[in-house]
């Protein structure tokens, strides 16, 4: 049982010395944090995890009333509720990945100041926690799609729906990548923490969540799709509802942006991780 591995502590770490293998060693901890977060979210609630189901319905309902019925935004002929639900669940998944990981350092400063474990464990747990929530929402969404389909609504799922795993992964990693960068910068500049909370809301409005890309004026459409979240949501809706377009060039670009942001985020995070406790 004697562990004879030698660990070397030096002032600086090489840029790409990421120690991702360590995160795997701590996989039990990741799952325990996920469990803790679930317990903590629904402690002393009457409905408990039922809230996971209620929340998207409530917010989609509000979206439908405000943006669909009052503002009368076009949904490309799709049933309004489904249209808004698709945008809503994917966006909230993305934004909670971002928000959750953006407070990694500040939110856990006390714990990180007392014990070492790979700090990336926290964002990983956050991804898993949010993915579970999203999958539950997604199943509800899918059931609704089937119901609408068989009651003769204008809903046409197609093969693009098979891209779902990639869309899910890309949303999670893009959100987390941004979150890691924010989290690293906020150890020194708290401004960014304030910016994130409403910045994410603003970001939602430049993303086709409550409107289809087809409603964006023609000359600005490519610009709107350069937003890496936009092609994800557009493809998601195209695949399951058959509305709008399948912007595959932009989707590929979005994957590339995700990869770049994620790698950059991990490198910055890794660099800050070593000494952040002295400045936080």
């Amino acid at each position: 049982m004697k562990n004879n591995e030698i660990t070397d502590i030096t002032p600086k770490r090489r840029l790409f010395e990421l120690n991702l293998g360590d995160v795997w060693k701590y996989r039990d901890l990741v799952m325990l944090f996920v469990k803790r977060d679930f317990k903590n979210s629904y402690k002393q609630t009457v409905l408990g995890p039922l809230w996971i189901i209620i929340k998207p319905f409530l917010s989609t309902f509000v979206f439908t009333v405000i943006f669909g019925m009052i503002a009368n935004i076009s949904t490309d002929g799709m049933p309004q509720f489904l249209f808004f639900m698709a945008g809503n669940i994917l966006w909230s998944f993305f934004s909670s990945c971002l928000n959750g990981s953006s407070s990694t350092f500040i939110g856990n400063a006390r714990l990180f100041g007392k014990v070492y474990f790979p700090r990336l464990v926290m964002p990983c747990a956050n991804i898993i926690y949010n993915t579970i929530g999203f999958l539950i929402n997604f199943v509800m969404f899918f059931i609704l799609v089937l119901i609408y389909m068989f009651t003769g609504s204008n809903v046409h799922p197609n093969l693009c729906a098979l891209l779902m795993p990639f869309i899910l992964l890309s949303s999670a990693l893009l959100g987390t990548g941004c979150g890691l960068i924010v989290s690293s910068v906020t150890t020194k500049y708290r401004d960014l923490g304030v910016l994130v909370s409403f910045g994410v809301t603003l970001w939602m409005y430049i993303t086709p969540v409550v409107y289809p890309v087809s409603q964006v004026a023609e000359p600005f459409r490519p610009l709107a799709l350069l937003n890496p979240v936009a092609p994800l949501i557009e493809t998601f809706r195209y695949g399951f509802l058959g509305s709008g377009t399948f912007p595959w060039q932009y989707l590929i670009l979005s994957f590339v942006v995700t990869a770049v942001v994620l790698v950059f985020g991990i490198i910055v995070f890794n660099k800050v991780e070593k000494n952040f406790i002295d400045t936080v």
Partner: peptide, 28 residues
């Protein structure tokens, strides 16, 4: 315990280090 990095010098250790800098860290 690798909570903060040194400015200079080097530490090597063999095996695992358990840090108990506080009782009940991470208790929820």
């Amino acid at each position: 315990c690798r909570i903060t990095a040194p400015t200079d010098g080097r530490v090597r250790f063999r095996g695992r280090i358990a840090s108990m800098l506080e009782v009940g860290t991470g208790f929820h």
